[in-house]
Amino acid sequence: MEARLSIQITVNGKTVSDHVEPRTLLAHYLRDGLGLTGTHIGCDTSQCGACTVLLDGEPVKSCTVLAVQADGTQVMTVEGLAAPGTAHPVQQAFQEMHGLQCGFCTPGVLMLSTWLVQQHQTSDLRHIRESLDGIICRCTGYENIVKAIARAGELAVDEPAAPAASQREGVPS
């Protein structure tokens, strides 16, 4: 085994310092290292997007990022979207529009959707569909996912404030 390397990542607003093997994938570190099992590993080949998290605010597939590559970055997982018991506007929209079936891809879809909402890229349905290129919903429930993302854009305009980082669930301290 190669020597562990020290990393410092801010996950859902909390900074964690740790030592990881170079080959540890970000998805595994989040799930096994930090217990943030909301991030799902679907295909593990960077196809399906279930493991999508925001890295410095940008959607990436965490099964294809090494934890050491995330050193010094800000990571947001589905647990960081809203405080326990509350829902982020994107989550509200998915509930309202029934934007999920089995729910396995949902954490990745929510993170990609959050980025789309933040980029104000939710007004054009065709653009939403294209943006879902990196997400595979094996239930094929794309219609309601597209509607939910469009609705999330509307909700975010009404209610732009996100919960403060300190209120978010997440990293064991």
Binding site: S46, T52, D133, G134
Partner: peptide, 9 residues
Amino acid sequence: IADPQVRHR
């Protein structure tokens, strides 16, 4: 090229 997530890496 690929999809939004891949284009960010």
